[in-house]
Design a protein around this nucleic acid. Structure first.
Lengths: 168, 168
DNA sequence: ATATATTTTCAATAAATTTTGAAAATATAA
DNA sequence: TTATATTTTCAAAATTTATTGAAAATATAT
């Protein structure tokens, strides 16, 4: 397979992959493009490569910056802004985990805390089922939260080494 | 908080949560409703509770069955079908992991295998960056695949116990 | 200061996804 | 068998989400 075709396939698949995980296709594609670009790219480079409008490009780049996956690069003597993505995949994964944990897991755990304190007699079957379900989710959620915290702090080598030993 | 309100909040939040993970809102809401329902529910029960149409209800129940999260229950002497969700959250998580692994992670790893074999000289910077990125993703992906395999087989007690020890 | 390049915003539009509801298919009862 | 209940399908409609592109804002150069 030629490089050009391989790049296109990667970008397109990364985009489709993203949509299965609640990430918009264009954002995932820009990320993919920057991941495989040796040098920082301008907005115009990205627009041209992916055939998308200036506004769309701009908004999604900003979103990637918010997620901590892309950074602005200023090249001396250049007026345009350049963008580049973190290439270390372990760091990328940790950053995504960190953000999703903060944006989704933590608020969900807070909600579960409140819901668990529902009024009513636990001898009432509907109260019991509700509280038991909420508690079960909360318990697993709290464990996930702790595990992810550790993962975020861990080095890839340590983490993979540990997993290898465990899950030989 | 009253049970009725708590239930509604849970269903609504579970639905919103789902959309952040590429799962349609209604499917997640039906799942939430069944999770907190002490007894199996009919299509009409679900339609009424969530204020959704018969077609929508039917399609999403089927989808939940495909995901292995809900099962049909036949009550003797009853003509209607009843539905209930697996209540053990650890089993639910394992089932979701298993399905997403099969549907998304495995095809992605297969694609990466093919992309890694791109033609061209690795001294060419653009080839090198591409291959290195693909290899990095593949390496982490393969490790995730193994780890998830183990998790799918593990008992909750073993898994949580292990994690607790590690991440004291 | 003015001109020019570049980035950002956002209302309008387009595209994708979800939902409806009525008709068709299927299953059960009489 | 015929009647009735129940489930399934799917084209059309509604809704949600993504994208465009031109105007406004900002930054840099002359």
């Amino acid at each position: 397979m030629k490089l050009t075709e391989a790049k296109q396939q990667f970008i397109s698949s990364w985009g489709a992959f993203g949509t299965h995980w609640g990430i918009n296709r264009t954002m995932a594609q820009i990320h993919a493009l920057l991941l495989i670009s040796p040098d920082p790219q301008t907005q115009d480079d990205i627009m041209e490569e992916l055939n998308i409008s200036r506004g769309n490009t701009n908004m999604n780049i900003r979103e990637l910056i918010n997620w901590g996956l892309v950074e602005r690069v200023l090249l001396s003597g250049e007026r345009k802004e350049y963008f580049s993505a973190e290439k270390d995949i372990w760091k990328v994964v940790k950053q995504i985990v960190k953000e999703r944990k903060k944006r989704e897991l933590e608020p969900m755990l807070q909600l579960l805390d409140r819901l668990e304190e529902v009024e009513g007699d636990k001898r009432d079957k509907s109260v019991k089922t509700f509280v038991d379900t909420i508690s079960g989710i909360k318990k697993l959620g709290r464990q996930a939260d702790k595990t992810l915290d550790m993962m975020i702090k861990a080095e890839e080598s340590w983490f993979i080494g540990t997993m290898m030993k465990f899950f030989k």
